[in-house]
Design a binder for these strands. Structure first.
Lengths: 331, 331
DNA sequence: ATGAAAGCGCTAACAC
DNA sequence: GTGTTAGCGCTTTCAT
């Protein structure tokens, strides 16, 4: 490249005005067929790529949606991100991922960096604790979708599920299966702890004798933490017969540690994970886990944002997509 | 928000010209201290976020670098992406991830979508086969870094390693350890197959009796494919005593399948992975694998691009960062 | 050290 | 259906 082509160059080469070039590219229906063909031929021949920066500035529409993920992106959100990306691409929008890496004041800085690009909407994933950030996001006046959680008072829209109810469901399941000395292996993020809370609540309702011990590990959770976590739990509570792990990676670690110790799963120890990552079904024993429909979250979030950007109203701005307990061999 | 604030609003509120506001924000040294404080106070108070779209358009510098990843992003590139993101953020650049999701003509469309935003540079990860895309990228005239591979004639700059040599090293290692009936479990992407080629080449040099069978599986590779792959290999070649898997996920599947079949690792079967993902060290037995320094790739790529964008020359535009064979218990 | 003028490349709004 | 004009919000450039 010597100097990037502009729409004016194309216009000159095609012998038309630059407005016609713009229309031929962006609103082909509003141009006669002959014109369209002539212009697009020049575009193809020159390899012209329109400058979206300029277009965005003028039209105040960036065709860009930002997703803000927790500092360390594990495999957990992958399904959602892929669906989000695809659904947006199909509608002519691009996804921009904001990922931290901004030092100690990360959250505010990250949001600032994202808002500078003037995205048409933002998808949040359990970040944004700081009231400062929330205020700033609100005053940006763009559609926001919060995900992976449920609250009565979202910033704007929400597509999620109840983490408490997940804990309750797993607890009831283990109780029904006859386990009686449960323990929890839990990431230290807010949502994971909400699951633990639900679990304990249900345990009380069911009249479980012991209060389940909770072993907290720093997120993002790893297999190694699962192994060490089970070891620690068994040290302190040797009679433990069931472990609910707030991620499949933790559960895999627990499975491996149990096997190393000669503990039979599920007979001597029940293991339940969360996420239903692609390896869960193929483990030995296959992992019983909680499935979250990340694809649906991503698609719905995309839909909500695009609808709002394009002036359609969103029927159900707070959507609980639930979850499902996938019963396999480990519990 | 009613209407987003502009630099002019801030200028009016601070009683200065908009140029002074711009300087106070972007080149604080070029403004007197009193001025700077006055302006930044207004900025803070109003929550003003500058419009990077406008700035990019005028200055022809987006402070944006794009990374183009294969359609399905596994955990493999995570380390690199994180390092890239962080290194860019520290230098005041933002990372934008391009991810496919654009239908059958994905590659060209993805590149087009990325180039429309006029990024200052592009980091490629083993995508971009189409000559069309390569031509278009070249004519965009921006710095490009290819990664995760080695070639004598890169598009522009390159930070990678030799996939052939990885195959050779693993083969030699297994030979030294006394294994004699090797097999390969290999993703169907180009780079994985390059590793297989290196492996077979070394096997020949070492005078290995059998030519190692290769079982190909579609990328991105999964644990389930590892299990099924080992089953298939053992069916066809019951005497197999060593498997080189071109990803740690495949290796994990092989480990699980071996254990299910009562095959002792490493005594009856050696297993080698690739990637050294965070779970590799904690498996039972711990996984022998090939480590690639994703952090270094990401940091170097960021450095190269920023250096070029800011007019500094890059000393060693083709950099082989090598790899290391991490010897653990599985082989 | 600060300000005024001009313009980046595109599209909204309006003419014809 | 096509063209003209103006301006999005910022920064470059030049003047003071």
């Amino acid at each position: 490249m010597v100097q990037a082509l502009t729409i004016h160059d194309i216009a000159r080469l095609a012998g038309v005005s630059s407005m016609t070039v713009s229309r031929a590219i962006n609103q082909p229906d509003r141009v006669s067929q002959a014109m369209r063909e002539r212009v697009l031929e020049v575009v193809r021949h020159t390899g012209f790529v329109p400058n979206a920066t300029a277009g965005s500035l003028r039209s105040a529409r960036a065709r860009l949606v930002a997703a803000v993920l927790p500092t360390l992106t594990g495999p957990v959100f992958q399904e959602m991100v892929r669906a989000l990306n695809q659904a947006l691409a199909e509608r002519g929008y691009q996804l921009m991922i904001g990922q931290g890496g901004y030092g100690p004041d990360g959250e505010d800085e990250l949001l600032h960096a994202v808002l500078r690009r003037r995205p048409d909407g933002i998808v949040l994933t359990g970040i944004l604790r700081s009231p400062n950030s929330r205020r700033r996001l609100l005053s940006a006046g763009i559609p926001v979708v919060e995900t992976w959680d449920l609250t009565a008072s979202p910033l704007d829209m929400l597509v999620g599920f109840s983490n408490e109810r997940i804990g309750e469901a797993v607890c009831a399941y283990l109780h029904r299966k006859g386990y009686r000395v449960p323990a929890l292996l839990c990431g230290d993020d807010e949502r994971a702890q909400r699951r633990a809370k639900g679990f304990k609540h249900m345990a009380q309702l069911l009249g479980w004798a012991v209060s389940a011990p909770v072993h907290l590990v720093p997120a993002p959770t790893t297999l190694a933490q699962g192994r060490a976590g089970l070891a620690a739990l068994l040290d302190a509570h040797p009679l433990t017969d069931a472990v609910f792990c707030t991620s499949d990676m933790l559960a895999l670690g627990v499975l491996i540690e149990a096997q190393t110790r000669g503990l039979a799963v599920p007979d001597q120890l029940a293991v339940v994970g969360l996420g239903d990552l692609d390896f869960a079904a193929s483990l030995q024993p296959a992992l019983t886990t909680v499935r979250i429909d990340g694809t649906r979250i991503g698609q719905t979030a995309a839909q909500y944002i695009v609808d709002r950007v394009e002036g359609r109203s969103v029927d159900q701005p707070i959507l609980d997509i639930g979850f499902s307990l996938v019963e396999r061999a480990s519990a």
